[in-house]
Amino acid sequence: MTRYVMIADLNRCVGCQTCTAACRHTNATPPGVQWRKVLDVEWGEFPDVQRLFMPVGCQHCADPPCMHVCPSTATAQREDGIVTIDYDLCIGCSYCTVACPYQARYKVDKPEFAYGDLPTENEAKRFDERTLGVAQKCTFCSDRVDAGVAQGLTPGIDPEATPGCVNACIADALSFGDIEDEHSNVSELLAENTWFQMHAELGTEPGFYYLWEADDKRQGTSRVNMDVQDTQG
């Protein structure tokens, strides 16, 4: 079996937002919608201040609350764990949005473009009217993954079968692959490093892992107050 997951190495991420830009270009998301965004997190008190950059988005949970609450069955889960939205079924009730503990979902009611009323060439090419008035979120670039797999390529290894944000990362901080394959890139990264899942206590079993050093000082970060800049595009 296959279970696709993503890994963000917080020790490597430099907060350049290239993944965000790549995602927005790939999916032509409107202003204010970032399926992949990077949080700028600071904590501590001067002069003992630390900072990290944290990519977030849909965690493609193994037990996704968004899917359970969805009244229309628009939100579903593939065999490989990718959580999907059927735009033709969704009624735009936003129940999934309030059920998601990762603030990964958006709803846009009218066409909006980056530079005013007229779309750019890329936006015009990729505009999908079906996404208006319904829930939308990161797809793990499932169409790209599927097309790559159909050609015999390996997601996470071959760029043609790998999500756009992972391909674009300049620091090699993002990785994608099959966690059920114990020899895959993601399995090896998790075996060799310390990691955490966000809000694991909620029982959602996120398919998104964060690598983070097992430094005593850094371990304390979950117990201190942090300031965060949530950069909206």
Partner: peptide
């Protein structure tokens, strides 16, 4: 958002509930 509790080693995989 939050940082979680650090863990080590390959995680135990919970399969997707697959409601498709």
């Amino acid at each position: 958002y939050a940082l979680g509790k650090l863990q080590q080693g390959r995680p135990t995989i919970k399969p997707p509930v697959r409601r498709e």
